[in-house]
Amino acid sequence: MSSPFSINGGAAVAMVGKDCVAIACDLRLGLQSLTVSNNYPKIFPYGDVYLGLTGLATDISTVSDLLRYKVNMYRLREERAISPQTLANLVSSSLYERRFGPYFVSPVIAGLNHKDGKPFICGFDSIGCIDFAKDFIVSGTASDQLFGMCEGLWEPDLGPDELFETISQALLSAVDRDALSGWGAHVYIIEKDKVTKRLLKGRQD
């Protein structure tokens, strides 16, 4: 109960579709069972790549700020946007740098490869081990529920609209069975030349 990963609560999920990817998070910030905020987004954009962070709220801020700095420096140095694969390796090495005093976060990445437009998603443990997946990645206090929902709803080659429905229903249903996450959601659908961000109201109890 007092694991740093479940003090503040929260959930995030990423999914692959046909020529598109989706990433979503809930909006709750809590202290154990008490909800402090119902508008605490956990997805951060780095150019056209998106990073979801669940876990200890302080480390969500610290890690997202640190990566913003690193990605901005990368963009200035290299005069190009960072690719999802490169960001994944940057996140991994940044987390492993703190191997013996880790940031208590479970990151998720979603984006389209710059060169071939191929969907890319991956997840990490708190010390940077990358989990490459062809279908979906879940993280947060509702990860068990998300695994079940994604396993049941996801199928290959979903178009952007179907993918939105799938990821939204998976997240909303998963967080309803988790006391530590919920209170609405943010969903990003990433296509080749369009990113759609939708705000889901969700159950407010």
Binding site: G47, E78, E79, R80, H114, G117
Partner: peptide
């Protein structure tokens, strides 16, 4: 994508 991002150089 090159046109979209409007960036020079790099990848």
């Amino acid at each position: 994508l090159a046109v979209k991002s409007g960036k020079t150089g790099g990848i």
